[in-house]
Each structure stands twice: as structure tokens, then as C-alpha cells.
Amino acid sequence: MKPHTLSILVENKPGVLSRVTGLFSRRGFNIESLAVGTCEEPDMSRITIVVIGDDAKVEQVMKQLHKLIDVIKVSDLTENERVERELALIKVNAEPGTSRAEIMQIAQSFRAQIVDVGSKSVILQVTGDTDKVDALEKLLRQYGVKELVRTGRIGIPRGSKIVASLK
């Protein structure tokens, strides 16, 4: 059982996300992360899904995904060298004069940006791979994380390789 990052190119139509996620839920797979957005083709979208499962089961889901009429390409990014990123927005307790300076320092070392400063809290924006976001979150816990929002993971193969078709 290992995580697989699947990149799925789909028609940008109503109901497509439901068709795609239905194939995971009927097999009892929990989706670890999900990101959907537009892509280089104007009327298509790309769905990036991270699931944990054994290779054979994931391969079966990929084949089933490929059977959906609205799915154009499916690939498992995990097979390639790739860049994967997530973005998180973290609202941290920061009463004036207390820990603000420390939080700023931590932010700096993670190349996180302070995107909002309030009277009692600040909002940090961080991008990176899962481990980096996890590490920052862990460090900030001691100051009191009031709210945390993470995007799903997105990924792209390194070099000139493009996300290839399953066929």
C-alpha cells in the first residue's frame, strides 16, 4: 500500500467529478487529497487525486477511470520524477508583543508569506510538498492554530515529459 498521485484529464462538464470519485468510493478507497482546476486545454479540466492502495487495485481504478466517456487521459504521476505542491493558509494566534516575532522568523525560514495581519492573529501562506507543509503546521501548533486550509496536491512530471496517456 503506497500513495499514488493520479492525474486525470477530463471534459469540463457537470457531473464529471462525481463520476470520477464514484469509482473510488465504490471500492472503499479513501481519497487523501483532491484538486480540480482548468488546464492547458480550454474545455478540459485536470483532476489530481492522491489515494493509498495496492498497485493492482490502483491500476484497476485507472482502467475503470479510462472507461468513463468524459475522461480523456489518466496517468499515475508516482511512476515518474515529478514536482508536487500543496498550498496552505494557516491562521495563527499572535497577540501583539508576544510570539509575533517568532512566528515571523519561522515563516521566513519556510519561505511562507504573511498574507494578513490582524490584531490577534496572522495568516501565513505556504507552498511546498506535503512534508514541508506538515512541518510548518507542526511548528505553529505551539502558538495556537485557529484555522488551517490546505489545497489538494497537484503535480507535474519533471523535464520535457508531459502527463502521458494511459494507452
Partner: peptide, 14 residues
Amino acid sequence: ITGITMPITKHNYL
């Protein structure tokens, strides 16, 4: 019905 039949049709249309 398109939601209900999603897993039991090859494809469906609204």
C-alpha cells in the same frame, strides 16, 4: 436519475 444511474450506466446525459 443521472446521479442514481451513474455507476450502472456506460454513460448518461442530463
